[in-house]
Simulated scan of single mutants.
Amino acid sequence: MHIPDNYLSPSTCVVFAAAMVPVWYYSIKKIKEELPADKVPFIGVGAAFSFLMMMFNLPIPGGTTAHAVGGTLIALLLGPYSACMAISVALLIQAVVFGDGGILSFGANCFNMAFVLPFTGFYAVQLIKKVVPSALGQKIAILLGSYAGINLAAFMAAVEFGIQPLLFTDSAGKALYCPYPLSVAIPAMLIAHLLVAGVAEAIFTLAIYEFILKVSPGIVYNNEKVKLNPIITLIIILIAASPLGLLASGTAWGEWGADEIAADGSLGKALGYIPDKIANGFSYSAVFPDYTVSGISDVFGYILSAVIGVALLIIIFKILGSRHEGHKTA
């Protein structure tokens, strides 16, 4: 679901970046108003869970991959506004440091995964809990809400892909950016997420939420003590297990490089050309491209990338939490 650069036109990217500005502004405002200063660093913990979940690539029939995101999980723990900022920062680090998702398409990726996903998941859970007000109902609500959130996000990404060949073509009628129309993009994205990624999102969300509620309910309930050791242990386990994401071969649908897209058969046959802007558009070299580290094996590179990503997220939100606490005291 990480849209690379040059798959969306610059104008499309600007529209979604502009749409996210008031969302980010209001999210920061709500966090300052509603979240206790001592809980702001826990946004970094939530962002770390999301970052790690996105590293676990899952095989999709047809040779592509997909992943969970964890947006509803963070929203349930800390609120949807915290989830929005947590995933936005995680996506920024993925794009800048690891080349996962585009720089220009950052706003669109945030719109899908940091806005649509957590808010849809969170409010779907609240609605279902009202309809089925029981312990079992809460579990069902979490499963269905998180499943709905990631699938609506995937649908939005598919629409963003699918409108490109309608709007932007060269004089010969060939697509300049993403070449897949809505009739191809929507089924491709939704099948992967309805059948695989959505199920993983639902299971991960329920399992981790129930675990945190059991070992450290203070993250959810203000009158309970926060116990970080079990959560840190779980993060370390996920980091150690992150190379499992390497087992799924193939590139996620819609994330092919210029060297791959000409041979893709999503249209029923090989595309046969490289869209001009994908071949000759904006280029950015990440520090650790695709979670690899020069000079070491892919497995250890993946683990090191996981450590770097998690550390950056926790440090960033720890600093922001300190600043927030300082403003509260002043």
Rank of each mutant, 00 (worst) to 15 (best):
residue 204 F to D: 09
residue 176 L to P: 05
residue 165 P to N: 05
residue 203 I to L: 09
residue 184 V to P: 05
residue 190 L to C: 01
residue 206 L to Q: 04
residue 179 P to N: 09
residue 191 I to L: 12
residue 220 V to D: 04
residue 198 G to N: 07
residue 177 Y to L: 02
residue 156 M to K: 06
residue 202 A to N: 01
residue 159 V to S: 04
residue 153 A to K: 06
residue 164 Q to H: 12
residue 155 F to Q: 02
residue 159 V to Y: 08
residue 219 I to L: 10
residue 210 E to D: 15
residue 178 C to P: 08
residue 221 Y to H: 15
residue 186 I to H: 07
residue 216 S to K: 01
residue 208 I to H: 07
residue 153 A to R: 11
residue 192 A to R: 01
residue 189 M to L: 08
residue 220 V to Q: 05
residue 187 P to V: 12
residue 199 V to R: 02
residue 157 A to C: 15
residue 177 Y to A: 03
residue 199 V to T: 12
residue 163 I to K: 12
residue 167 L to N: 09
residue 216 S to I: 02
residue 213 L to D: 06
residue 217 P to N: 03
residue 161 F to H: 04
residue 200 A to H: 08
residue 182 L to C: 08
residue 159 V to L: 05
residue 152 L to E: 06
residue 159 V to G: 07
residue 171 S to G: 15
residue 168 F to N: 11
residue 175 A to Y: 00
residue 174 K to L: 11
residue 200 A to W: 08
residue 205 T to R: 08
residue 159 V to N: 08
residue 217 P to D: 06
residue 195 L to F: 07
residue 204 F to P: 11
residue 161 F to M: 04
residue 218 G to Y: 02
residue 219 I to D: 08
residue 171 S to A: 15
residue 196 V to Y: 03
residue 199 V to H: 09
residue 166 L to Y: 09
residue 170 D to F: 10
residue 213 L to C: 12
residue 221 Y to S: 13
residue 198 G to Q: 13
residue 207 A to N: 01
residue 188 A to Y: 01
residue 168 F to G: 13
residue 171 S to Q: 13
residue 201 E to R: 00
residue 214 K to Y: 13
residue 188 A to H: 00
residue 193 H to C: 10
residue 208 I to N: 03
residue 176 L to W: 07
residue 167 L to S: 06
residue 223 N to G: 05
residue 184 V to Q: 10
residue 165 P to H: 07
residue 183 S to W: 07
residue 212 I to W: 00
residue 173 G to D: 06
residue 198 G to L: 05
residue 160 E to M: 15
residue 186 I to C: 00
